[in-house]
């Protein structure tokens, strides 16, 4: 700047400068504060800003290592980050520009993103900001957004609950697309009622995967999910359209095979399914090996249909298969007894 700039600056009275830049500081060549804007004066309160050394009042954090006026002068035109050395250590961003020869520097400060803290710490009002400053709009937006976010989080909670309710009412297992336990119970009740009305009989196969847990544990859940999807595909292929295929637990499946059927045919079907389970399934270059065990019941074994009883008898037959060394299919007969520790074998 040249000499005429000095003349021009002196034509701006401090009050006017303070309205334009409520947080300006005029720093003398010796590093002392000669003038300060009203907001900055309010911020510093009792510490009487005028006459103090600028660099003893503010600590520059960026650019680093500014300790002298010469170094501050060198940082002119760059974005400065600084904090009040005294509590509450309010942070600022600012810009320093050199004035004319012998005039020192003019530094203008703003709060940047710390504006909400500064407003709280120093009890600032609208009048403390320049009319051109968007700080108050920022505060407004901050509050308005908080209000909106609160309403939104309420909406999310309600949506979450609605989703949980919908899932509970759903009839499909999301991973495999097979029927879920709820759908199985509905289908089984209907099939049992049909038999009681002299309708066609049906067979029920309870399948449990063997070694599935070790696939999950060693190759990860993604591999496990792949195996379950493959199992679902095999079960769909091995059954007819009017049969029911349900996933009723992590690695448990139940088939309802409608129409007259005999035990031998169901055993053959189960063995075919188990044999297909045992074919290696490849997931991302890794081979997953599983097998399966089956328990079979026939509606024709019962005088009166009882879905719960059928399921527990199929369960019993399944555990007989497990007990006999897995990869088996066992048909329920009343002489199958339930050993006390059968669940511990899984």
């Amino acid at each position: 700047m040249d000499g005429t700039t000095t003349d021009q600056l002196t034509t701006v009275p401090p009050e006017a400068l303070g309205r334009l830049m409520p947080m300006y500081v005029w720093v003398s060549p010796t590093g002392h504060v000669r003038e300060a804007g009203p907001t900055l004066t309010k911020l510093c309160g009792d510490c009487a800003l005028i006459g103090r050394r600028f660099l003893e009042t503010f600590e520059l954090s960026r650019p680093r290592g500014i300790a002298t006026m010469a170094e501050l002068g060198a940082a002119a035109g760059r974005r400065l980050h600084m904090t009040l050395r005294e509590p509450p250590h309010t942070s600022f961003r600012g810009l320093a520009v050199p004035l004319g020869p012998g005039q020192g520097m003019l530094v203008n400060l703003s709060f940047g993103l710390a504006v909400a803290d500064a407003v709280r710490d120093h009890d600032l009002t609208d009048a403390d900001f320049a009319v051109t400053d968007l700080a108050v709009e920022l505060l407004y937006l901050h509050e308005a957004k908080s209000a909106v976010m609160d309403e939104l989080s309420g909406l999310n909670t309600r949506l979450q609950a609605a989703r949980a309710a919908a899932e509970e009412q759903a009839l499909t297992d999301p991973l495999t697309g097979l029927a879920n336990r709820r759908a199985l119970e509905i289908a089984l009740t209907r099939a049992a009622e049909a038999v009681d009305r002299d309708g066609p009989g049906f067979g029920l196969v309870h399948l449990d995967l063997d070694y599935f847990k070790s696939v999950n544990d060693t190759l990860g859940h993604a591999a496990g999910d792949h195996v379950l999807t493959e199992v679902a595909r095999i079960l769909r292929e091995e059954t007819r359209r009017h049969d029911v295929v349900a996933r009723v637990g992590g690695d448990e499946f139940v088939l309802i095979l409608r129409g007259p059927s005999d035990a031998e045919r169901l055993v053959a079907l189960s063995r075919r399914i188990i044999a297909r389970f045992e074919e290696p399934m490849v997931f991302e270059g890794q081979t997953c090996r599983i097998s399966g065990s089956a328990g079979i019941v026939l509606s024709s074994c019962y005088e009166r249909q009882n879905p719960d009883r059928m399921l527990s008898d199929a369960d019993l037959a399944l555990y007989a298969s497990k007990r006999n060394g897995r990869a088996q299919a066992t048909v329920y007969t009343p002489d199958l007894v339930l050993p006390d520790d059968h669940r511990a074998q899984d």
């Binding site: 909400a116 407003v119 009890d123 600032l124 108050v136 505060l139 209000a147």
Partner: peptide, 8 residues
Amino acid sequence: SLAMPVAA
């Protein structure tokens, strides 16, 4: 006050 109350 411009400062947002803690529990608005």
